[in-house]
């Protein structure tokens, strides 16, 4: 998908969890992405982060370290 769209989707998720009380928000964002994003979407996210992660909010960027790399 268009990178801007993907970035905006990741940021939307991060925005929700950012408002939640408690700690470990990056993990919660990543859990959501792991549960709902198909492997090629997650791969695209990793590629975008490797290319500098332009546009991703700090929390979304943080979350990427907890996003699971698809096995195949």
């Amino acid at each position: 998908m268009q990178p801007e769209k993907m970035v905006s989707m990741a940021n939307q998720i991060a925005t929700f969890f950012e408002t939640q009380p408690g700690t470990g928000q990056a993990k919660k964002v990543a859990d959501h992405i792991n549960d709902f994003w198909e492997p090629r979407m997650r791969i695209q996210l990793f590629e975008h982060v490797d290319a500098g992660g332009k546009g991703l909010s700090p929390l979304a960027l943080d979350a990427c370290s907890y996003v699971r790399m698809p096995a195949d």
């Binding site: 998908m1 268009q2 769209k5 549960d35 709902f36 994003w37 198909e38 492997p39 090629r40 979407m41 698809p70 096995a71």
Partner: peptide, 14 residues
């Protein structure tokens, strides 16, 4: 497959 699949908008993007 243990991985989630594509949702309709994701299918169209893909």
């Amino acid at each position: 497959d243990p991985e989630p699949g594509l949702r309709i908008p994701n299918m169209l993007d893909a």
